[in-house]
Structures are given as structure tokens and as C-alpha cells.
Design a protein around this nucleic acid. Structure first.
Lengths: 340, 340
DNA sequence: CCTTGGCACTCGTGCACAAGGAGTGCCAGT
DNA sequence: ACTGGCACTCCTTGTGCACGAGTGCCAAGG
């Protein structure tokens, strides 16, 4: 089976060379740059087998070989371990992220950091609303008929809405309403909280009831509003110009980067915390990205992944290095959320 | 002086043709597509004069002419009026923006709308913190030693900070503190408010004083923090691929789009509300954008421009149409901020 | 059975060169 | 002041050809 091993070594060498040179790699160049201990002719035979099995392909007759999606898949699964980060890199990550002042800032710094580390396009999903709990609800009278409702969540996120009332509301009524709502929802997951807040309104004094209903409706809407679930931050679009036009036109990619819903679909569901997911070429959900790969990981306080982050780049990318960066950033962000 | 008039007509025709065809325009094509009433030879003479005066140039001998920055400048200043928007366009704008739920949403919708209308890269600055007044300060006890300070501004913006206290703070003390601070700062411009909040702390009871100082410090920091001044939203990067690579590589442009400070510099100071500013090529502050033009306008509630919005595109752009779109969106956004 | 050197073949790339065409500048005539 | 004509420039496009990288296959050797 030593021949089988060498064949895999050849595949690994092809992937590595192709990633660094961006050019189809031939048998001769291969034996020169790697210590394979065999002649080009032997490598050619191996290549023929690898091509038969679908791991590599040639763009046209008499050109070098290029890894296929299947080839990259094998490479990622079997032929590589996640590279450990250097001390300098670790220090860079922590010093970059430690200065963050709030959750939004953490996300924005992370996405920037990630795009710089990997030199790819970084995507970070904002912490998901639906999996957080309610920490507090604050009601502020803007005028007698307008109330600002502020919803503070365990993730540190703050949502606010202005409520228009049909009748004026006195300060003590507002106070009562605030106390009632907070008693009902504090600590609840927002899905439950939305129901709880409508339920409590019925117990209110008649004078407060109208206002209560209005506030309840707005809060329920804010809670069930999944708009915030769809927020993502993107960075590193400039790296697009590095990949020789990505292989086709960059137009659809640039467009997709502004469609945050699309990006969320790309990131996809994440596995348990600490795992890095790699989707190569056609493995992803979007045909538009069939020549791109996505490397992603979940993050969140504790062991629960409440959101995803990752990068998207050409299938021809440095998988080991990229996976290491994504994992490291996901862990750091998780730790920061733990502390907060 | 009728010859002088025709010469300007020739310049206008050159600009219009070049904008629509993206190719240097020759004398023959010009007389065919516009009713100039003269022969190509005459046009050639006019072109020679225009070139002499620096309004047009030829990429190389025996090629057609292309407007220079100076040519575009003359075109914008003298040869065009802002096109009125069609009814359909007006309706599209209002229906697109009317669904916004808060200030951030208005900004995000505007930037998207603007990039779609103009098919250029749109940039919208978030309403500036420093020119807004304080509407309310809310303090929420997260625990006995942690307080969430929420700062609500006239622009509708909400800033929040978590304050760590050294000593526990009772509810009534918090209440007193909240009342004191609000009394001092409500209605003030944030620059003044920052001073006012530190001043009031000295009048507090000893028990509240420590906590008051901590809260004051954090609020003052939030108020003087100009980070928010630098926030901008960007949209339409995909349009970059329309301009045939922008004339050079798109790399620096893509990079600049993520440097929000750079974009703010690009937008520059805006004139009084309702005016549209056009900076053509080298007129702008950044050499990197010397082959781009910026069309911008101020917006804000009332007549005061508290922020800018605009687009950046190649110098070869449809100025009349773009100026109309920018102006229309700026006005609509201003109106919405008026109502809020 | 695996490996190796040799050899013919394929096919993309780079280059030189010619043909074509768009556009200009200038000049002389009206 | 305008126009037609003409020579000139120079970019663009297409063609042919030599070159070289890389392959596939085969026969010989371990």
C-alpha cells in the first residue's frame, strides 16, 4: 500500500503547489519541488489514476493538473491538520479584539481581523436575537403620547422602538406598566417573552390598558422581528481582486456580498462550538458560489453557538491556514462574550 | 458669438456621447448623432479649439476626443440643468423609504436606494452625534454594581454603555442620579452636556457621589466619542464592475470603500441643505480617486445639514441624472427626519 | 507488479506582420 | 466662416508560425 500513500502525497503536493502558484501543475515541476523520490513518469501514472478517480482534472489536453472539488475535499479531510497559530498571531488577535467596547464593536473588529488574517472575504453574523434572553425592558416618555421602548438582551444587544399612543399616559401609569412588563419577561427567551407581554396587559388597570396594548404590540413585534437575525458584517471585498477575477466575473460575488440574506445562507448552520466547517465549491447551497469555498465556525457564550462567522474565498485557497484563523477568531470572540 | 455657442454645443455633445458609449467620440459620429447643422470638418476645427483650451483631449493621435476634468466641470456648471425626477421615480423613492422603522433603517434604505437609482456606489453618513441634542438619559441597574447607561439623542440615535461601579448602589440612589443627570443635560447639545454632567456630580449626596462620578465619566466619554461621527453606510460596490475596471485596477477603490474615514473625507463638507456638490476628478481631496467624481448633498431635519450622502463613480458619468437622484434622496431623508 | 526513460503528439502562448479602418490636421476653394 | 478632399497616424484585428510545457503510451529493467 505504499503506492497508495504516494498517490495521496502526490495529491497533497498538487493542491499545495496549485494553491501557491495558481497555475496547473505538471509532473516535472512536482518532482522538483517536492521530495517524492520518484521520476516524473511515475508521477504521471499516479496522476492518471487520480484523474480517473476524479480528484484532479486538466483544463485542456497537455496542460498540468488542477484539483477538483472532490480533490480538495480529500485534502481537507485526510491530508491536513489544522495549523496551530503562532504566538505572534495569537497576540495580534487578542490585542485587536480586546479593545472592543460593545457587541457591535466586537463583531466589526472580528470581521476586519478575519479578513486581514485570511486575506479573504470575511463574514460575521451578529449574535442572534432569537436565542438570547430578555435582560430588561425600559420605557421612556418622549412626550405624553409617545414612548420609547428599549429592549435589552442578554447578548448585549439593544433594540428600540417608538410607540405612538392614542391617549396620554401619566408618569405613574408608565411606571406601573414598566414594572409589569419587566416582571413578566425578564430572563425569558424572546420567543416566550413575546407571548408573556401580551398576556400581562389584560391584568392592567383600564387607564393603562390601551397604552399597555400598544406597547405590548410594539414589543412583541420587536421580539419576533427577525430582521436582526439577518444582520451580518462583511469585510475584505478588496481581496477579491487578488484571486485572478475569481475565475469568472466578480460581479455576482460583489452583488451577493450586499445581499445579507444570501450570506447567511452561505454561512449555513454551524456545528457545535469549536468545530470548523468547510464547504467546497458545489457542496455549498448556492450555485452562484460553485467556484468558491466557505470556511465557517459557530461562536457564542459558553458552549452554545448563537451565531456564525467565517470567510468565503476561491476553492483554491490555503485551507489549513484559513481554518486555523477562523477557529482562533471564533474562540476568541466566544471568550469575550463569556466575559461580558 | 454664434460660433462660440456651437462650440459649447459640441462640448455638450461630446460629453453626452462619451458618457453613453464609453468610447472616444469622433467628428463624424458627432454630426450624425446630433443635429449640429455643420460638417465634420467644422466640428474638427471646433474640437481643435476646445482641446487648445483644455476642455477635451485625445488618448492618442488619430483617436476621438474625450472630455477632461475641466470639460466636465464646464458641462456641469453651464451646460446642464438638474433633470426633474419622473413621477414614477418620486413614488419609488417615497415607497422605498417610508417603510423605515428607525434612523439606522432610514440610512440603510437610503444608501441602497441611492445605489440602485444612480447605479453607482452610494455612501450615506449616519446622522452626526456632535450636532444633535440630548433627549433623555436612562440608567438601568443590571446588578447592584453594574449600570447600563442609555443616551437618547434628538437624531433618534441611541448610545449605550455599561458602567462598572466600585460600590453597590441602591434603587433610590440610582433614581436620584438619573433625575439629576436628566435635569442637567436634557435639551443640550452633546458638547455642552458632557461638561454639564460632570459638573452636577459635585452636588450629589456622598453615597451617590462615587457612582455618579463613574456614570458621569462614561457618559462624558460616550458624548465626546467621535467614533459615531465616522459611521457611514456603503452600497453598490457591484456597480464597480460596470465601469470597465474604472480605468485602472479596482483594488484601491474596494479598499477605500472599507475605510470609512476615507469615505467621509471624500464626501467632504456639505453646503447648505438642498444644494448638490459635484467634485470632479482631481478636484477631490484624494489622489487615489483622481479618476472618480463625487456627487454629494447634505441632509438633516429642518434646514441644518447634520450629515452628508452622495455617490462616487467614474468621472465619465451621467451628471444630470445623478445630481437629480442625490438631491431627491437627500430631500426625502431630510423630510423623514423632520417628522421623526 | 512497479518504475523509468524515451518519444511522438497536443495545444496554448507569444510574436511578427499585414490589412483595415477610424480619426485627425491641413489646405484650397467657395 | 464653412466645406470637401487628401494624406497621414496609429490602433485594432487576424493570420501564420515557432516554441515549449505537458501528456500518454510503450518497452525495458528491477
Amino acid at each position: 500500500m505504499v503506492v497508495e500513500d504516494r498517490r495521496l502525497a502526490v495529491l497533497r503536493a498538487i493542491v499545495e503547489d496549485y494553491v501557491s502558484t495558481e497555475e496547473p501543475v505538471g509532473s516535472k515541476a512536482l518532482v522538483e519541488r517536492h521530495q517524492l523520490g520518484v521520476s516524473p513518469a511515475t508521477v504521471r501514472n499516479d496522476m492518471a489514476v487520480l484523474e480517473e478517480e476524479g480528484f484532479i482534472a486538466q483544463p485542456h489536453t497537455s496542460a498540468g493538473r488542477v484539483p477538483t472539488d472532490k480533490g480538495y475535499r480529500l485534502f481537507v479531510d485526510k491530508l491536513t491538520a489544522v495549523k496551530p497559530m503562532s504566538v505572534a498571531e495569537r497576540r495580534a488577535i487578542s490585542s485587536f479584539l480586546d479593545g472592543a467596547v460593545d457587541v457591535d464593536d466586537v463583531v466589526q473588529r472580528s470581521v476586519r481581523l478575519l479578513s486581514q488574517l485570511t486575506r479573504q472575504i470575511a463574514v460575521v453574523q451578529y449574535p442572534t436575537l432569537s436565542r438570547s434572553t430578555v435582560r430588561h425592558v425600559e420605557l421612556v416618555a418622549l412626550s405624553t403620547t409617545r414612548v420609547l421602548a428599549v429592549l435589552i438582551l442578554s447578548s448585549g444587544r439593544v433594540e428600540q422602538r417608538v410607540v405612538e399612543l392614542e391617549e396620554a399616559l401619566a408618569d405613574d401609569e408608565l411606571f406601573e406598566l414598566r414594572a409589569g412588563i419587566n416582571g413578566a419577561v425578564t430572563g425569558k427567551v424572546i420567543a416566550e417573552a413575546a407571548g408573556a407581554v401580551t398576556a400581562i396587559v389584560e391584568d392592567l388597570r383600564p387607564g393603562t390598558q390601551m397604552a399597555g396594548a400598544a406597547v405590548a404590540a410594539v414589543l412583541a413585534e420587536a421580539m419576533s422581528d427577525h430582521r436582526s437575525d439577518e444582520r451580518v458584517a462583511v469585510s475584505g471585498a478588496a481581496n477579491l481582486s487578488r484571486f485572478g477575477e475569481f475565475d469568472t466575473n466578480i460581479r455576482p460575488i460583489l452583488e451577493a456580498l450586499e445581499e445579507h440574506v444570501v450570506l447567511l445562507k452561505l454561512l449555513g448552520e454551524t456545528e457545535a462550538d469549536g468545530m470548523v466547517t468547510v464547504r467546497i465549491g458545489h457542496e455549498g447551497p448556492l450555485p452562484r458560489f460553485s467556484s468558491s469555498s466557505v470556511v465557517s465556525a459557530g461562536y457564542g457564550p459558553g458552549d452554545t453557538a448563537i451565531a456564525s462567522l467565517g470567510i468565503v474565498g476561491p476553492t483554491r485557497m490555503d485551507y489549513p491556514g484559513t481554518m486555523a484563523s477562523v477557529r482562533a477568531v471564533a474562540r476568541y470572540v466566544s471568550r469575550i462574550l463569556d466575559e461580558a
